[in-house]
Nucleic acid binder design. Structure first.
Lengths: 235, 235
DNA sequence: AATAACTGCTGGACTAGTCCAAAAACCAAC
DNA sequence: GTTGGTTTTTGGACTAGTCCAGCAGTTATT
């Protein structure tokens, strides 16, 4: 889309300034597109364009038909630390919440089968969850578990940390993981859950987990709102 | 921007299909926005919106006033492997090129000083380079070196690997590094170099390098075209 | 043969609207 | 007090154009 250059340079600079100057605080609402277009005497399309650009930058985010809001600071995600979601968020003085969206049991589709190194028709469980930080839905997670490794797991509370559940109920420790971080667009079902537009940018993380015997136990697809996270690695 | 929903769903699906079906090949040009708008009987704005969305997905990219093109496969970037850029690209059967954009010598601004753990006014060299994969500019790099650690470095060929230069000329080995990966928008000078629009999404990588004595020797800012790369970690 | 000027094509930026659907606020009826 | 419509507000999607600037290829000039 027309990305802000001349007319919208103004409004971008003003908003950026207001945000960095703490006049607009995290989670606070920004005036509506129509208001801004009147304030700056430009079309709503140009306003949208400027807001889009600030959104890419990670300064603001939109909620469908609710308005635009200032983004809170990014969470630091260290893939090398064996720390589960709630712990990580708590360590950064933020509050976390997990909501179970649904569970499906099915035969592993080919992409998943390849990732999990399954050679033939194998049943898997797919657990879909939505994670919140400070009350805002920022992460959609899809876990694919090899069913026979986790008998009876569906009767457990799946809103808790799966890593902990693996350890306590099955004696599995996540020994190592393979990660892939891919900036891409949100697929339909993810966009819907995160309340963003289909095709909007997200950070996709594909993760394959190995237990202490070096067996693959599950894989995970995470979709983060890009303004909510940064990857941090110290080695 | 209006992200593709109804009218533009069509055009998105068609292009996606043509690309995955290899009817449109990497680096190949897509029909112009005006042509597409006639072909699908929709406005150019709607076409733009659909193309924008495919761009976010990483399937296509634009070149200013030249047209839209199909993205080649992403490069896998493993931050834990001590492998320099040209080596990494070669290992993936692609061709790399580095172009020196310029060198500045200055006092470290506060952000850099903090990163490099400098306590007082310290001169640094800033080396700006542009990296190409298969002839396409995909990576803008800014290296900030503490000047007194690298006497006379400016007389060297700076288009080669700095890691290698550090080792051969100064006996420095990059022992470990801290990384931060941040999906954000391209600043003005980066956008210009990469030939993308200001404010377009990029993957920003901040990296601080330590030598074998555990001293910070330099820091680096990388800005990747998001469709050109994925981060891959195995541990 | 080299260079400068022209020209068409491309995306960039923008104006001025319209219609729609979801969310939220409001208000009246129960 | 709660429920259930109605109205208002908000962003989503779209139409139908305009003008501009950079790129590339051609043509005319030197």
């Amino acid at each position: 889309m027309g990305v802000a250059k001349d007319v919208s340079k103004d409004i971008k600079a003003v908003l950026r300034d207001q945000i960095s100057g703490k006049l607009l605080l995290p989670l606070q609402k920004i005036p509506s597109e129509r208001e801004l277009s009147e304030l700056f005497s430009i079309t709503r399309i140009s306003v949208k364009s400027a807001l889009d650009s600030l959104e890419v930058e990670g300064l603001i985010y939109r909620e469908d038909r609710r308005g635009w809001f200032v983004s809170p600071p990014r969470i630091k995600y260290n893939p090398l630390s064996r720390c589960h979601f709630h712990q990580m968020i708590r360590d950064q003085q933020r509050t976390a919440k997990t909501q179970l969206l649904g569970v499906k049991s099915m035969m592993a589709p080919s992409i998943i089968a390849t990732l999990l190194a399954l050679s033939e028709l194998t049943p898997i469980h797919v657990i879909e969850r939505l994670r919140y930080i400070d009350g805002r839905a920022v992460l959609f997670v899809e876990n694919c578990l090899i069913s026979h490794c986790f008998p009876d797991i569906l009767s457990e509370d799946l809103a808790q940390s799966l890593t902990i559940l693996y350890a306590t109920k099955y004696g599995f420790k996540t020994n190592r993981s393979n990660f892939e971080f891919i900036p891409t667009a949100a697929p339909e079902h993810v966009a819907q859950a995160l309340n963003i537009r289909t095709g909007q940018q997200v950070l996709k993380i594909c993760r394959v987990n190995y237990n202490q015997h070096n067996d693959i136990i599950d894989c995970e697809f995470e979709y983060w709102r890009t303004d909510a996270v940064m990857i941090s690695i110290n080695n």
